[in-house]
Amino acid sequence: MKGSITLDTVPSNTFALITSINADGPTRRRLLDLGLVPGTRVEVLQRSPMGDPVAYNIRGAVIALRKEESSQVQTSR
């Protein structure tokens, strides 16, 4: 899909729309449970001092994800 990037590459202080989760098994379940369901708008907040993890505003809560997880979340801008 054009303009489709994974969540970890979305720059800070911008929004992204979740389109799909690429993971399977427990990781997929955990990400879904956090509210990362397709159609959700997520705001990318600050990066930790070393660049990873990154904090996201997901449905009203600030949640930090490591690159390993956020790279499995497909988004469109």
Binding site: A61, V62, A64, R66, E69
Partner: peptide
């Protein structure tokens, strides 16, 4: 490392 998610409460 296993998956890591951490909530930063207000």
């Amino acid at each position: 490392p296993s998956s890591f998610t951490l909530e930063l409460p207000p």
